[in-house]
């Protein structure tokens, strides 16, 4: 019982239940609005019947040629609403939109190597590690990211799936589209 709909700019006034959680970063206005201005259909939110925001996902479409794909920039679920399948629902929608209208070859995302919960979850959703981005996350402590991908229909040759992708190392500057 959650309404899965597109994120609205004015939802930013109501996302505290989600963003006050320490794992979720709050960015400036431009960050959210620039996604909305360009990929309104890749930014979705789940809310309760009384319109409390429970979770959101923001994504973009990028790349050229067979690299053209949907990218998950952030996905987060408020602590109270975890393990209800909300992430699953939002990912399914993002994948669907990446397929139609964007017609991408795959969907990808970066996840901290240490975020076991998320990695396992993505695996369950059909993602696999494509490559390791060395020290992708900087800050107090640096950390590697896994670039995880899931092929869409258009990737008939399943080029976005790679055996042992974990051992395929790249530098952060190599993953900019």
């Amino acid at each position: 019982m959650s309404s899965l709909r597109q994120f609205k700019a004015t939802d930013l006034f109501h996302f505290n239940t989600i963003n006050l959680d320490s794992l979720t970063e709050t960015y400036n206005i431009s960050f959210y609005l620039s996604y909305l201005a360009r990929w309104p259909d890749l930014f979705s939110v789940q809310c309760t019947p009384s319109e409390t925001l429970m979770a959101y996902v923001m994504g973009k479409a990028e790349g050229t040629g067979t690299d053209w794909h949907g990218h998950v920039t952030a996905i987060t679920v408020a602590p109270e609403y975890r393990r209800l399948g909300l992430a699953e629902g939002m990912m399914a929608l993002l994948e669907k939109v990446s397929e139609q209208p964007y017609d991408g070859y795959f969907v990808d995302l970066f996840v901290r190597r240490s975020n076991k919960v998320a990695i396992e979850m993505y695996k369950r959703f059909g993602y696999s590690i494509y490559r390791t981005v060395v020290e992708y996350y900087s800050g107090e402590t640096t950390e590697d990211a896994f670039d995880m991908r899931k092929p869409l229909k258009r990737d008939v040759d399943r080029k976005s799936v790679r055996e042992n992708g974990e051992t395929f190392l790249v530098e952060p500057h190599e993953v900019v589209f």
Binding site: N16, N19, L20, S22, T26, Y27, I29
Partner: peptide, 8 residues
Amino acid sequence: TMGIKHVQ
């Protein structure tokens, strides 16, 4: 300590 930022 709450990390309140931007629109918050």
